[in-house]
Simulated assay, not measured.
Amino acid sequence: MPLRYVDPNKTHGPVYRASVRFGRSRPGQFVGRRIQPRVDRVWSRLTRGRGMSFVRSAPLVTTGAKSGLRRRVQLAYFHDGRTAIVMASNYGGERQPQWYHNLKANPDCELAGEPFRATQVVDPDEYQRLFGLAVQVYAGWGDYRDRANRQFPIFRLEPR
C-alpha cells in the first residue's frame, strides 16, 4: 500500500471535525488507546492504508533497539513537503513510546512499506512550526501536550 500524502493545511469537513471532537472526548480517548490499536492493523490492510482512525495512519516498521527484531506499529503521520512527520506523543503519557527508542537506535525504517531514514527535529523554531502543523492535522496533540510532563519528540522521515 503506497503512503498517501497528508496535507496539514487541508480544510476539513464536518465529518472530520465531528470525528476529532469525539477523539478528544473521554470515550474517544478510551477507544483510541484501548481498542483502535488492536483493530487498526487489520483494518488498514483491508482498506489499503486508510486505517480505522479519522487521522491518516500507516504502519511504521522499526528495528528493535535491544532485540534487533522488526517491530510494527500503526502510527498517525502528516507531510511537510516530501518528508513524512511523526510525533512520539504516546497519547500524552509520561513515557516515550517504544518505537521512539527504536528510531533513536536504528533510524532506518519503513512507513507504509516505503523506506525512510528518521532524524529527530531539534531546532526549537522548526519544532514549533511542525507542532503547529500537527495540531492542524489533529487538535488532540495539543491536548496531549497540555497534560503531559514532557516535550514530544518529532521525527522527520526522509525517503531513502
Score class of each variant (00 low, 15 high):
89 S>E: 04
122 V>G: 08
120 Q>P: 08
16 Y>R: 15
105 A>M: 10
67 S>P: 03
63 T>F: 04
36 Q>S: 14
54 F>D: 05
65 A>V: 10
108 D>T: 09
97 P>W: 11
159 P>Y: 15
138 Y>R: 10
56 R>V: 02
140 G>N: 07
158 E>F: 04
124 P>C: 13
82 R>F: 07
159 P>R: 15
94 E>T: 12
148 A>M: 02
48 R>M: 11
132 G>Y: 05
115 P>N: 13
94 E>D: 15
112 A>Y: 01
126 E>T: 09
96 Q>D: 15
91 Y>H: 07
125 D>A: 15
109 C>P: 02
8 P>Y: 09
43 W>V: 12
56 R>P: 01
98 Q>V: 00
1 M>F: 04
64 G>I: 09
6 V>S: 03
38 R>I: 07
121 V>S: 12
88 A>F: 03
59 P>Q: 14
13 G>Q: 06
73 V>R: 06
120 Q>S: 13
60 L>I: 14
135 V>P: 03
36 Q>L: 15
127 Y>M: 06
136 Q>M: 11
47 T>S: 15
154 I>Q: 03
91 Y>D: 06
116 F>H: 01
111 L>G: 02
59 P>I: 14
137 V>M: 05
123 D>R: 08
95 R>G: 06
125 D>N: 15
124 P>K: 13
84 A>M: 09
56 R>I: 01
26 R>L: 08
54 F>T: 05
33 R>V: 12
77 Y>G: 00
60 L>T: 13
158 E>M: 04
113 G>A: 12
